[in-house]
Design a protein around this nucleic acid. Structure first.
Length: 916
RNA sequence: GCCUUGGUGGUGGAACUGGUAGACACGCAGGACUUAAAAUCCUGUGGGCCGCAACGCCCGUGCGGGUUCGAUUCCCGCCUGAGGCACCA
């Protein structure tokens, strides 16, 4: 009987479904484990082999935890709102609801094929009204809350209103405008609109104005990615910065807690580093510089007030509101021209530009300590959104300022003596200050506080903590997203009542943008008539809390009952790509903190442990067409011709050799293709790039499952390498894993004899092989080293085959070990062995060290660090005994000759090194 | 440009805490079985040198330095691939 994987896999998938084998209850006496994947966006291209990598890893871990006696929550769903469905609707007229649900059905079919243990009763789709009702509800919690700085937590906004009525805002500094100040009487005298405008500046979800990349021709806002050199990627239309009304989340209020929370969770150091760099906390000071011949002052933010005497110029962002009024007429034309140039540049281009650009405004400020005149420049590398949008430039201490000064021939003041060599800036804080008046002779880092205090005393500065992170833009001028539960009346935003939720996304005939940068919803007369908000929420809204919904999917009175969230708690293992490092992972952490602060859940970090899966890249193949002909030249000969490289479908290429017959059938264009071969073959070019349909380098898991079975596919994806590592896909090696399963099968069945497994007592050697495997595979699974676990299975089966072992007592624990990795295969063999119940409900075998005891070791003997011999020595030998044995060895004697031995290093159980 | 991360045979990778580099596979070569094929099994396989062979020697983990008895692993500099940089998801 041979290994008929297709029949076996279908059979067990059906049985699992019938028996509800993967249904998970919220009631259990077992300890819980919550194992979660980042849910996919259901794209029209379907699943490619890159998607299941993380899902297989989490599936293995879930099944492993279940065998270890845990009640395991392992759900799946879809992040179903987003731009591609809307784009598709605009281009093809298909409603996003339809295309999204079609895609979901397709994803589901593909996922089912692989045999995952998801509890599908808990499926969530963020575009379902039953789901986004609660996204809207959480938005209202954010809208109706403020961040109390004293308690460092979110609190209901009516507490703040009560406080305002009693004491004004004296104890509640306004996060949006620290200078805002009013008394209780002021507050009482304010109109409703004035009150609401003030409250808006405290809310965690608030409305304001922000700059976006605006493309007038497309009538839409673009991502930085979609803007190339000031023109839209699609269509090549000009793009400009434009101020639009936007919703925001006040995530900056949570900056410190998002930072300190990192200490309580198991993310990789790299991930923590990325998040804290993104948050970018810095301590410094704000300083006001008086403007020459102007009533106002220029406020800058600096982390280095100690360098105040080294300030040679100021740089302000081109968007800075003061520019208009400080620029004298003589410089207006040049400044306007420069601002025009910057307007066409995306933020990305501005900060990554190597070329130094800038423009002198003609204005000067004065140094508050010595009244020196300091010229004011504008340059694109200073961004309006960070700090105060203006910096003081100290060329001797800052690299970018130094290059700027050099480029524009601005004289450089040296305030750190020999520490500055005139060739490059020195950002040290250890320098001894000179040319610095009252600071002369002082170490820089000590001067920071002194300068700040002095500025505070003079009333022109104060210490300030700044964050690089900005508040999160939370509205999109799009259709396919959650409507905001907000009505506008007389310029005031009113939240809908909870019982009015969900506010359903209306059907439209036209997905194109509304007038004046409004979303498509503005095109609907009935929507406008109700004064509903016309923006929708961004893609990250639904994904910021979905892990909570899985705990209590069917609940239609709460987003998730407190009982359910108390039971499941944090996600124990979260698997997904690093591309979400600073987006999704920060937003979901913030939402969790808000829900915790408001008492809706009992933990304030969502993910206890994060595992980042690497990206599976595509390995693209190219053919080379001689320009202007239908002749295709093999890769090795292409240099003799003028050729265009064209992507060719990887599925019609064997390794690098093109199937020329298949190629002529692949596309009608190529029907008449002629080939110039080398050694009788057409060899393709190779490049590793992102897996994408348009590059014809995608590999569909369905085809592989069909050909080799789901279990082979699962193990092969794991065998490719460490889950965390990115690697190009190559189908070639899958045969090896398939052979392994067939070989394993032959421990149970022989093609001719049929059943060969027997009920005999195992030998010591057989038990040793088994227990070695138990130990290694358990350890590897625990540390998510699935690739080495697979190779341990191979070693185990190879050794059992060499021993001719077909004993049930060895094979049945092996089947359990295999269950997480090859569940169908294991289930079938479990039944074959006549074991009770489903193997998914079995108990994990327990390692027993007595079977793997070793008494001696083949020690590697190095001389001066070079391996010269291997000697078998008893493990319990003392160092003196080992020394005697080693020095008596022929090979060792030959190398040592009669030189004195300086040192002998003996590491028990590892190695010996002789130094001569 | 900035942040993060990777680079080991022809290929994917292993070496977990500084201790035998190349486990386990793929591929390739040779052989067995077969009318033939598939399947399966056996042997070899980092590069170089000496050699009939065995034994053995030298080099080798992107490049250049350093620390150490000992470095794929730690430190410094460089080259290079990947991901992210706020409206793609």
């Amino acid at each position: 009987m041979e290994y008929q994987f297709r029949a076996i896999e279908k059979k067990w998938q059906t049985i699992w479904q019938e028996k509800k084998a993967y249904k998970v209850s919220n009631e259990s006496t077992k300890p819980k484990a919550y194992v979660l994947d980042m849910f996919p966006y259901p794209s029209g291209a379907g699943l490619h082999v890159g998607h299941p990598l993380g899902y297989i890893a989490s599936d293995i871990y879930s099944r492993y935890k279940r065998l270890k006696g845990f009640n395991v929550l392992h759900p799946m769903g879809y992040d179903a709102f987003g731009l591609p469905a809307e784009q598709y609707a605009i281009e093809h007229g298909v409603h996003p609801t339809k295309s999204t649900y079609d895609n979901i059905n397709n994803f589901r079919k593909q996922l089912d094929n692989i045999g995952f243990c998801f509890d599908w009763d808990r499926e969530v789709k963020t575009c379902d009204a039953s789901y986004y009702k609660w996204t809207q509800w959480i938005f209202l919690q954010l809208f109706n809350s403020y961040f109390d700085k004293q308690q460092s937590k979110a609190r209901p906004i009516d507490i703040l209103e009560t406080a305002f009525e009693k004491q004004g805002n004296a104890n509640h500094i306004c996060p949006a405008d620290a200078s805002l100040s009013f008394t209780a009487n002021d507050w009482k005298a304010y109109s409703e609109k004035e009150k609401q405008t003030i409250l808006m500046q405290y809310r965690l979800a608030f409305c304001g104005y922000g700059e976006v990349n605006w493309c007038a021709a497309l009538g839409t806002v673009l991502a930085n990615d979609e803007v190339i050199n000031g023109f839209s990627e699609r269509g090549g239309h000009p793009v400009e910065k434009k101020k639009l009304r936007q919703w925001y989340l006040r995530i900056t209020e949570y900056a410190d807690r998002l930072l300190s929370g990192l200490d309580t969770i198991q993310f990789s150091e790299a991930m923590k580093e990325m998040q804290s760099n993104w948050i970018g906390r810095s301590e410094g000071a704000e300083i006001d510089f008086a403007i020459q011949g102007h009533a106002g002052s220029l406020k800058v933010y600096t982390t280095r007030p100690d360098t105040i005497f080294g300030v040679d110029f100021m740089v302000v962002a081109p968007e800075h509101t003061l520019i208009e009024s400080i620029t004298p007429n003589t410089h207006k034309a040049a400044v306007a021209e420069y601002i025009g140039y910057v307007k066409s540049r995306s933020e990305r281009e501005r900060i990554s530009e190597k070329k130094i650009t800038g423009c002198f405004t003609g204005a000067y400020v004065t140094n508050p300590f010595n009244n020196a005149l300091i010229p004011v420049w504008i340059s694109e590398y200073v961004l309006a959104g960070y700090g105060t949008g203006a910096i003081m430039a100290v060329p001797c201490g800052d690299d970018r300022d130094f290059k700027f000064a050099q480029h524009f021939n601005i004289p450089i003041t040296n305030i750190i003596g020999a520490a500055f060599n005139g060739e490059e800036a020195n950002p040290t804080k250890e320098g001894i200050l000179s040319n610095s008046d009252f600071l002369n002779g002082m170490v820089q880092k000590k001067a920071i506080a002194i300068v700040t205090q002095k500025l505070e005393a003079m009333g022109i500065g104060k210490s300030k903590i700044n964050y690089r992170m900005r508040d999160a833009a939370f509205s999109r001028q799009r259709y396919w997203g959650e409507p905001f539960p907000i009505k506008w009346k007389d310029g005031i935003a009113y939240p809908l009542a909870e019982k009015e939720l969900p506010l359903l996304l209306p059907t439209v005939d036209n997905y194109s943008p509304g007038p004046e940068g409004e979303g498509p919803l503005a095109n609907i007369a009935s929507w406008k008539a109700e004064h509903y908000e016309t923006n929708t929420m961004p893609g990250f809204a639904g994904s910021s809390w979905y892990f909570l919904r899985y705990m209590d999917t069917a609940n239609d009175t709460e987003f998730c009952s407190r009982k359910a969230s108390d039971y499941w708690g944090q996600v124990d293992l979260y698997i997904g790509g690093t591309e979400h490092a600073v987006g999704h992972l920060l937003y979901s952490r913030m939402w969790t903190k808000v829900l915790f602060d408001l008492g809706h859940i009992g933990f304030d970090e969502p993910f206890k442990k994060l595992l980042n899966q690497g990206m599976i890249q595509g390995s693209s193949r190219f053919v080379y067409r001689i320009r202007g002909t239908q002749k295709f030249v093999s890769s090795g000969l292409k240099h003799a011709h003028e050729v265009d490289a064209l992507h060719v479908d990887v599925n019609i290429v064997d390794g690098v050799e093109l199937d020329t017959a298949a190629f002529t059938k692949w596309k009608p264009d190529y029907a008449k293709a002629e080939f110039i071969l080398e050694d009788g073959k057409y060899i393709c070019g190779v490049e590793v790039e992102k897996m994408s349909k348009s590059k014809f380098n995608t590999v569909n898991p369905d085809d592989l499952v069909e050909k080799y079975g789901a279990d082979t596919f699962r193990m092969y994806e794991m065998f490719l390498g460490p889950v965390e590592q990115s690697k190009p896909w190559d189908t070639k090696g899958i045969e090896g894993v398939h052979r392994f399963l067939k070989k394993c099968w032959r421990l149970f069945f022989d093609e001719i004899k049929g059943k060969v497994w027997v009920d005999e007592a195992p030998t010591a050697a057989e038990l040793k092989v088994l227990h070695k495997a138990i130990k290694k595979i358990e350890e590897d699974t625990e540390r998510y080293s699935f690739n080495t676990a697979v190779s341990s299975f191979m070693i185990c089966v190879n050794e059992l085959a060499d021993l001719n072992c077909h004993k049930k007592e060895i094979l049945s624990p092996l089947v359990i070990l295999l269950t997480p990795y090859a569940p169908h295969f294991a289930e079938e063999l479990w039944q074959v062995l006549g074991m009770k119940g489903l193997v998914v409900d079995a108990a994990y075998p327990v390692f027993d060290a007595q079977y793997v005891m070793e008494t001696a070791k083949e020690y590697p003997i190095s001389i001066n660090g070079k391996l010269r011999a291997n000697i078998l020595i008893a493990l319990d030998a003392s160092e003196d005994e080992v020394r005697a044995i080693v020095l008596d060895n022929e090979v060792v004697k030959k190398w040592v000759e009669d030189k004195p031995i300086k040192k002998l290093i003996f590491v028990k159980g590892k190695m010996v090194n002789i130094v001569i």
